[in-house]
């Protein structure tokens, strides 16, 4: 079975799905909070324009989950501050 991990938990996916599609299929709607109001964010535009769906992949932050194809063994971490890459 194809799986990646989200904050240590295994998450199955269909090869060919993006990380966002797999996250949404698992019932998740939010996995990040905003810098100022700590507002929850998940997928919004789904096509790489809005940057709401950011995750950290294998330690690299600021990745748009809607654009990256899920691969077995990826370690996704969520919920981290989104400010480290732009300030």
């Amino acid at each position: 079975m194809s799986e990646f991990t989200v904050d240590g938990e295994p998450l199955p996916f269909v090869p060919g799905q993006t990380l966002a599609a797999a996250l949404v299929a698992s019932g998740r709607v939010a996995w990040r909070t905003t810098r100022l109001g700590q507002r929850p964010r998940g997928v919004f535009c789904g096509i790489g324009v809005c940057f709401d769906c950011l995750v950290t992949i294998d330690g690299t932050g600021g990745q748009r989950a809607c654009l990256v194809q899920a691969r077995t063994g990826m370690a996704i971490t969520t919920g981290e501050g989104d400010d480290e890459c732009i300030r």
Partner: peptide, 18 residues
Amino acid sequence: PGVLTIGGLQSLLKGGGV
């Protein structure tokens, strides 16, 4: 969360079957 663009809904359907 749960509010998406309609293009976002469509991309999840057409690209990921979700």
